[in-house]
Design a protein around this nucleic acid. Structure first.
Length: 286
DNA sequence: TCAGACCCTCACAG
DNA sequence: ACTGTGAGGGTCT
């Protein structure tokens, strides 16, 4: 086992890994186990930051630092949020929550599978997809097996009914269709980093099963467009209750509001609001 | 703009 | 234990 410690001030590892950005992390005895690319990995909170455990020697840890985004100056991000009591509460309730920087294909595929599903169900589907069609990975002795996320080529090669066996239902043709467009080069995921957010969003929305919300999730969680603000039912409910308690806003108005109100790090603000609604309010008011 | 369909699973009543 | 019902990080037509 190989250890590496990352300096990270103000990093809420558990909140970050369980916040519905990524679906492959599980808490095991106080640590978090998951897969990044083709590496099984265990993460835990340490005094000065984050401790990582892997099984093979690593020459350059930048891939993990990129993923974790531990070098982002969170204080300056938070200070860019609008000053209002709701944001203040959301930040206070999970200070240290971060945005990850995930692989575009895995992120895209995961969110195609997310529509009208609860987070636990998404995790279950993603797990099934990986264990059936991913590549088996090295894990510690005696540890349950772990698998990589299957490539777009692999998904494109499967039949719809093979995919439906993973309990993804009507999302199966969306996932397969998107994989095919990526394999054919009709949409080039690697090129979107060079685009501006509107162009990148338009490209993603060419894919079947990808509308505005899922596109924004991918822009935010994989490409690092921090102004992207995915609006789902939770956030919609939060915005409606907190900012427009009197008057119901149309989806279009709400989008305009988020684009102007939350600033350059709107995506971070969204993540804090989402986490706040889901963990604090959602449960109590249900 | 606006329903309704879309698969499937789980939680929760009765 | 068994069946019925509703809703779940949306998208498409």
């Amino acid at each position: 086992m190989i250890f590496h410690d990352f300096a990270a001030k103000n990093y809420a590892l558990a909140d970050t890994l369980s916040s519905g950005q990524a679906f492959r992390w599980r808490e095991v005895n106080g640590a978090w186990e998951g897969v990044i690319d083709a590496n099984w990995i265990r993460l835990s909170q340490s005094k000065s930051g984050i401790r990582a455990e892997v099984l093979q020697p690593v020459a350059d840890w930048r891939w993990l630092s990129d993923y974790l985004q531990n070098e982002v100056d969170l204080d300056s991000v938070i200070s860019s949020f609008p000053e209002d009591p709701h944001m203040a509460k959301a930040v206070e309730s999970s200070r240290g929550l971060r945005l990850l920087r995930q692989d575009p294909w895995e992120c895209l595929a995961s969110f195609i599978l997310s529509s009208t599903k609860q987070i636990v169900q998404i995790q279950q589907i993603v797990d099934l997809v990986c264990s059936r069609f991913g590549q088996s990975l090295r894990v510690p002795d005696g540890h349950p097996p772990a698998f990589s996320f299957p490539s777009a080529e692999r998904i494109a090669s499967l039949t719809e009914s093979e995919l439906r066996c993973c309990k993804m239902g009507f999302r199966a043709p969306y996932l397969k269709g998107s994989a095919e467009m990526i394999v054919s080069g009709e949409v080039k995921l690697a090129d979107l980093f060079a685009n501006n957010i509107e162009e990148a969003r338009a490209e993603l929305m060419k894919l079947p099963g990808v509308g505005r919300k899922i596109a924004d999730c991918v822009l935010l969680f994989a490409y690092g467009f921090q102004q992207a603000f995915p609006i789902d039912v939770w956030i919609l409910k939060a915005l409606q209750q907190l900012y427009f308690p009197k008057r119901k806003q149309s989806p279009k108005k709400m989008t305009e509001f988020t684009e102007s109100y939350f600033g350059p790090n709107a995506g971070y603000a969204q993540q804090y609001l989402f986490h706040y609604m889901r963990t604090r309010i959602g449960r109590a008011s249900k």
